[in-house]
Design a protein around this nucleic acid. Sequence first.
DNA 1: GGCCAGGACACCA
DNA 2: TGGTGTCATGGC
Length: 222
Amino acid sequence: MDLFWVYKQLFARYGPQHWWPAETPFEVIVSAILTQSVNWQNVERAIENLKQHNALTSGRLYKLPEEELAELIRPAGYFRQKAKKLKAFINHLHLEHNGDLSRMLAQPMKKLRAELLSIWGIGPETADSILLYAAQKPIFVVDAYTKRIFSRMGLVSSEISYDELQRFCMAQLPKSVKLFNEYHALLVRHGKEVCRSKPCCLRCVLARECQFWRRNSSALGR
DNA sequence: GGCCAGGACACCA
DNA sequence: TGGTGTCATGGC
């Protein structure tokens, strides 16, 4: 079994996901930070608050006091921490790139990734989401769903690190922005919808490839 | 009322 | 390098 086969199954089942659900690269970055460990619906409320207060531009966020920002993003959870994280990013953008996001995102992928990871509050997944969905760089975004689905299928250990899983995925897929965009979105869709509980394989399009299904197929009535 | 959601960081050994 | 606690809201 290869990862491209898995992709084709997911795409056949769910179709295009049209990610990232945001209107501008800046909105991608803000929502990528807001969505850390939180339901997307909560992020949408926070984004809506920012829009209503006309605060969803780097210039406006730069001037907005951290306490006010925290109140606006309260629905997204961890709102004090996330206000700090957003401020850390905005301050970096203004200090290092004079507020010019396009210039920042135009850098080579490796350099930009290192720069993003150096900003407080941006870890590997957030950095890669920004690289892929805001900067259109060909990098595979790993998240909890990726690890859960692939380890449940027996492809990797559930103990695998972020970097190892990313290398595993990128080693067997063409380096395509379009593919990586859709693949990550499909894994999230599948993870949310089906592969949440352990005996997911009763409804899972990947059932026959899934180690859990193979171990329990008789008990599952197949 | 408990559990979980599209993580990251601080602190410790 | 790895384990644990912390950050916090909202839906089910």
